[in-house]
Measured scan of single mutants.
Amino acid sequence: RHRTIFTDEQLEALENLFQETKYPDVGTREQLARKVHLREEKVEVWFKNRRAKWRR
C-alpha cells in the first residue's frame, strides 16, 4: 500500500469538518468523501490519525 497524498483542497475540507466534529458519522464521512473524491475509508483513517495528533 502506498501513502495517500491529500491535496490542499482535500485537507482544507477535512480540517474544516474536524473543527465541527472530531467524530463524524459514516454518512457525514461518505458525503465528504464524495465531495473531495476520496474513499470513505481514507476519510475515516484521516480522522483517526488527526484525533491522535490532536490529543498529543
Rank of each mutant, 00 (worst) to 15 (best):
R1W: 06
R1L: 15
H2P: 10
H2E: 14
H2S: 14
H2V: 13
H2R: 10
H2A: 08
H2D: 12
R3C: 14
R3M: 14
T4N: 14
T4I: 09
T4K: 12
T4L: 12
I5T: 14
I5Q: 14
I5D: 15
I5F: 12
I5N: 09
F6I: 11
F6G: 05
T7F: 02
T7K: 04
D8R: 09
D8C: 07
E9F: 06
E9I: 09
E9R: 11
E9Q: 06
Q10T: 01
Q10S: 02
E12V: 09
E12S: 13
E12P: 08
E12H: 04
E12M: 15
E12I: 14
A13C: 05
A13F: 02
A13D: 14
L14R: 03
L14G: 02
L14T: 04
E15N: 05
E15C: 02
E15F: 00
E15Y: 02
N16G: 08
N16E: 08
L17N: 00
L17R: 02
F18C: 00
F18I: 06
F18R: 01
Q19T: 09
Q19R: 09
Q19K: 08
Q19V: 08
E20Q: 14
E20N: 13
E20F: 11
E20C: 14
E20M: 09
T21Y: 08
K22S: 07
K22H: 03
K22D: 04
K22R: 10
Y23G: 00
Y23V: 03
P24E: 03
D25H: 02
V26C: 10
G27N: 05
G27A: 14
G27C: 11
T28S: 13
T28Q: 12
T28L: 13
R29N: 02
R29T: 05
E30M: 12
E30R: 11
E30S: 13
E30Y: 09
Q31D: 08
Q31K: 15
Q31R: 09
Q31C: 09
L32V: 07
L32Q: 00
L32E: 01
L32W: 01
A33D: 04
R34N: 12
K35Y: 06
K35W: 02
K35E: 15
V36L: 12
V36E: 02
H37E: 07
L38Q: 01
L38Y: 02
L38M: 12
L38T: 05
L38A: 05
L38V: 08
R39F: 09
R39G: 15
R39Q: 15
R39E: 12
E40I: 10
E40A: 09
E40W: 12
E41T: 07
E41V: 05
E41G: 09
K42Y: 14
K42I: 14
K42H: 13
K42N: 15
K42M: 14
K42S: 15
K42Q: 15
V43K: 02
V43S: 01
V43P: 03
E44W: 07
E44P: 02
V45L: 13
V45T: 15
V45E: 13
V45A: 10
V45H: 07
W46D: 01
W46Q: 00
W46I: 00
F47C: 02
K48R: 12
K48Y: 09
K48G: 08
K48S: 10
N49M: 13
N49A: 11
N49Q: 09
N49H: 11
N49S: 12
R50V: 02
R50E: 08
R50G: 00
R50H: 03
R51S: 01
A52K: 11
K53Q: 10
K53T: 08
K53N: 08
K53G: 08
K53V: 14
K53M: 09
W54F: 01
W54V: 10
R55K: 13
R55P: 12
R55E: 10
R55A: 10
R55Y: 14
